[in-house]
Design a protein around this nucleic acid. Structure first.
Lengths: 207, 207
DNA sequence: GCGTGATGTAAACGACTGTTCACTTTGTCA
DNA sequence: TGACAAAGTGAACAGTCGTTTACATCACGC
């Protein structure tokens, strides 16, 4: 299904996906995109679209796939890179912020279509994020105090962290680009939120 | 601007707004709605739309207004109703869940268009939620320990709470209707998340 | 070099879009 | 009762939409 050989066409396939991402970053939602406008902005004739995607929805699913992949890539890199013992949280947050900025289009797509109008995309993104939460939960389970927590409790706290990070992502994407002050404030707030959460960990009794 | 006298037309105006909400709850995003289909589902001719709204965007803004109003109404009622001292959190959460279920269409609209494709709606909702966060922050500032917190810290924790509640809202709207088990789990998870947050409050040092 | 499959083109289709204008119906208030 | 404004109608417009079908071009492996 994903099997595709490289060649000239592969680049225009990419171009179509990029055009869609750009439209979305400009404000449109996916199910208001026009096949004709996409092909026009890529410089091919409308019918040529079908050489690369069976339908618009197929394009959307490809975008979900690609975007979730950059999300996973981030997590993998975060895991492999050595953890600085002081300021773990703050440095993680600012790394994340930089990552989002470096992949604006993908994150914009995820944020918009996460609650967007196309069911299959919505579900695909939802599943991807749930997977993300699960992985974060198991990661957390390796830390000193949290290693005694039950699985549901770990998921609960992972969900909370992801909610905070999601809020931060929204702020980043809507902040003016290259505004160090705005970035600093987002990093600051999110860091404090995460610190607050972790501060509660030692007190927690699962009840 | 909002001044409108009652009459026959007022009901079809309402009908148009409801038709839009129903379409959105069915999965469409606002900027993919069709003026003609809306009027058709209401039983009037396309041109009659303009008797009630200057444009589609005007309809959207009216929906933002209406939806945010139900949000504020909830908060007001929550404030006025006496607070049960035990199980404050759990009972608040389950009240909220019931409220969302009773106003599915409005919450669905807010959730979808919060990151949706129409800028003015997005901003309107964003501002409404920010107001919501601010009010929550001042409300929190009346509680025993929190009354010594700085304003930014209060906003920070209010934002975190809203993030958790937002996540819960998403789950409610996507859960099958009338499924007590699903409801119970959502209430449970969210309650534990809020409990965790409040558990950290006494430990917090602002720096 | 030739053929073959991948990629792109051109024309055309029927359907649907938002919006205009002039007109008719309806309800209300003087 | 009759006037007037609000609400709804009907026809028509210029565009845009997705998709089909048949044909042209390109690149690459034999």
């Amino acid at each position: 299904m994903t099997a595709r050989r490289a060649g000239r066409g592969e680049t225009t396939r990419k171009a179509l996906m990029d055009a869609a991402l750009r439209q979305i970053a400009r404000g449109r939602s996916f199910d208001a995109l026009s096949l004709r406008k996409l092909t026009q902005s890529v410089g091919i004739v409308p019918t040529a679209f079908y050489r690369h995607f069976e339908s618009m929805e197929a394009l959307g699913l490809a975008l979900v796939d690609e975007s979730l992949r950059t999300l996973r890539r981030m997590m993998r890199e975060a895991r492999e890179q050595p953890v600085p013992h002081e300021q773990v949280i703050r440095s993680s947050v600012s790394t994340y912020v930089r990552y989002v900025q470096a992949n604006r289009l993908h994150f914009h797509f995820i944020m918009r279509e996460r609650f967007g109008g196309v069911a299959t995309l919505r579900h695909g993104i939802h599943n991807g994020i749930q997977l993300f939460v699960s992985e974060l939960a198991t990661d957390l389970g390796r830390f000193p105090v949290l290693d005694r927590w039950s699985a549901p409790d770990l998921r609960m706290i992972a969900g909370l962290i992801v909610a905070a990070v999601t809020e931060a992502t929204d702020l980043i994407l809507n902040a003016p680009e290259d505004d160090p002050d705005a970035d600093a404030e987002i990093i600051n707030t999110t860091t404090r939120q995460l610190r607050l959460i972790l501060l509660a960990v030692p007190q927690w009794r699962s009840q």
